[in-house]
């Protein structure tokens, strides 16, 4: 019953808001180039379905590639940090600098260095930079917070560093890592969108570009349709990662004691 309420209540709110929106636009005769009615947005979506889905596929590909790259790089760096305090102390500040520098500011440089003829690679790199840090931070914390006594126990039984890493540190890091991945999934999408914005016209072909283009042409309904698709993509990514988290932790971790 509670789970039904979790779905029905947000949907009811959505229906209510959309209804009010539709009514308000009709009642005050708001121009379509300021705020189109939901019905107009739906029509724009249907009319541009093919090209919007194509744009979505392009953005989604960049997002997923960047997310995977961030996972691989973040986990590998965290493992390296966990094995060498010196390495961590030397390099962690740079990871932080990469994190706090606004990506919009670095993006033009990356586009120039990588080159517009390899625009997809540039987009993936920019989105990877955005998604990288939460994974690194989560994995580093998880690898370091393993039970001290458990680590001692592996020493007592003559375990190698690799065995301790594989049997204790990595499983211990999993909840932290998954939490970082949930944040990173959303950030990868944001990174992809920002990268497309910076790349500008003619080169990028994703949803963000559709938003810019629709805005320039005052096709506000199409802009809203692309925006809705983008939001939906973000939600789906988050839900998929939440499901993965629940599935991996369901047998043992406190956070997964209840179904998502």
């Amino acid at each position: 019953m509670k789970r039904h309420a979790d779905i029905i209540l947000p949907l009811a709110v959505a229906a209510l808001l959309l209804g009010a929106w539709e009514g308000a636009v009709a009642h005050w005769q708001v121009p379509a180039y300021v705020l189109p009615a939901p019905s107009a947005i739906a029509r724009a979506f249907a009319d541009n379905f093919g090209s919007l889905i194509e744009a979505l596929a392009s953005t989604l590909a960049v997002t997923l590639e960047a997310f995977l790259a961030a996972c691989v790089l973040g986990i590998a760096t965290a493992i390296a940090f966990s094995q060498s305090r010196l390495l961590e102390r030397t390099l962690y500040p740079y990871a932080v600098i990469l994190q706090v520098t606004p990506v919009v500011a670095i993006a033009p440089l990356i586009l120039i260095w990588v080159g517009f003829e390899r625009i997809n690679l540039a987009l993936v790199i920019i989105a990877t930079i955005v998604a990288f840090f939460p994974i690194l931070a989560g994995a580093t914390l998880g690898l370091k917070s393993a039970d001290f006594n458990l680590i001692d126990l592996t020493r007592l039984y003559g375990a190698s560093r690799l065995q301790t890493l594989w049997r204790i540190r990595l499983p211990n890091a999993l909840p932290y890592l998954l939490s970082g991945m949930k944040t990173a999934g959303g950030l990868a999408l944001i990174g992809a969108v920002v990268a497309e914005f910076v790349a500008g016209s003619g080169t990028a072909t994703g949803l963000a570009w559709r938003i810019v283009e629709s805005g320039n042409r005052l096709e506000i309904a199409t802009l809203f349709a692309a925006l809705a698709l983008l939001a939906l993509t973000g939600v789906v990514i988050f839900a998929a990662l939440s499901l993965l988290e629940w599935w991996l932790l369901r047998r043992w971790h406190e956070s997964a004691l209840q179904a998502p």
């Binding site: 006594n149 007592l156 039984y157 049997r167 047998r251 971790h253």
Partner: peptide, 28 residues
Amino acid sequence: QIGFVFQDHTLMPWADAMTNARLPLDLK
């Protein structure tokens, strides 16, 4: 050969009882 039991159970929460009891043997 030394066996060590801590004040806290110090088990791996992600592993079942069998896997936990097997840890020293797995490490060897």
